[in-house]
Design a protein around this nucleic acid. Structure first.
Length: 234
DNA sequence: TCATTAAAGGAAA
DNA sequence: TTTCCTTTAATGA
């Protein structure tokens, strides 16, 4: 099973179980290049294509006019995005932006559907990838409904450790260029609040942190902070 | 309990 | 240097 952590908003994927299906889909795609910060599509737009990240990093989020943002996912290579608007022909509900210089396969949905008619197994792969995101959306809703600020941060750190954690001398490092503002936009908290909570966790010797990186030094204690009633952050 | 505002420190480009 | 990221405190919903 490729997905050991189906609930992280930071999405990576190992394609090894689906190389043939990916190849078939990409055979009808064209390649497009995006610069860092370049918008790929905007919420409200309609689309006849969906996308596959060949190289780079893409953020999908819902933007508001006042500049605030809810990040839905940050995705790395070998992942799909923009499927919903393509397959159901309704406008995008989210905006996609390249976070770094990226190479994106653009897949026209009509051609993808033709591929699926001929190779139905491609549909199963697509369904599984879409459910992966459905699941992560569900878990995000759960956190919004039930968790206080500290637990939201604790939970997202647990998920990020599982998805992109890198073992190091001190513990497990999360080093993906995410700012406190990014974490705030994922968890629905303010940037200042994220900083305060991370500082509290550092004081409690659960994590250490530096610019753009957090290292979990006590994963058991981190996990234990999800248990019990909501606590103050001191 | 948490958002907002403001003001400032520090690191990176 | 400028820009980006982080910190801290004060205020109030």
């Amino acid at each position: 099973m490729a997905d050991s952590n189906p609930d992280s908003p930071y999405v990576t994927w190992d394609t090894k179980d689906f190389e043939k299906e990916i190849f078939l889909l990409l055979s009808v795609s064209s390649l497009r290049f995006y610069r860092q910060g370049e918008m790929i599509y905007l919420q409200g737009e309609t689309s006849e294509s969906f996308f596959f990240i060949k190289k780079g990093k893409v953020k999908t989020s819902i933007l508001k006019e006042d500049g605030s943002e809810k990040i839905l996912s940050i995705q790395e290579k070998n992942t799909f995005f923009g499927e919903s608007a393509a397959f159901d022909r309704h406008p995008h509900f989210e905006t996609a932006i390249a976070l770094e210089e990226s190479e994106i396969n653009v897949i026209p949905v009509e051609r993808a559907e033709a591929v699926i008619m001929e190779h139905p197994e491609v549909a199963f792969m697509v369904i599984r990838r879409i459910i992966r995101k459905l699941r992560l959306m569900g878990f995000q809703v759960e956190d919004f409904a039930f968790l206080d600020a500290q637990k939201r941060i604790v939970h997202i750190l647990i998920k990020l450790v599982a998805e992109v954690g890198e073992p190091c001398a001190e513990g497990i490092m999360i080093q993906r260029g995410m700012t406190h503002e990014d974490l705030a936009n994922m968890t629905g908290l303010s940037r200042v609040r994220v900083t305060t909570i991370l500082n509290n966790l550092e004081r409690a010797k659960v994590i250490t942190k530096k610019r753009l990186a957090v290292t979990v030094i006590n994963p058991e204690k981190l996990r234990s902070l999800l248990d019990g009633p909501d606590k103050q952050d001191g």
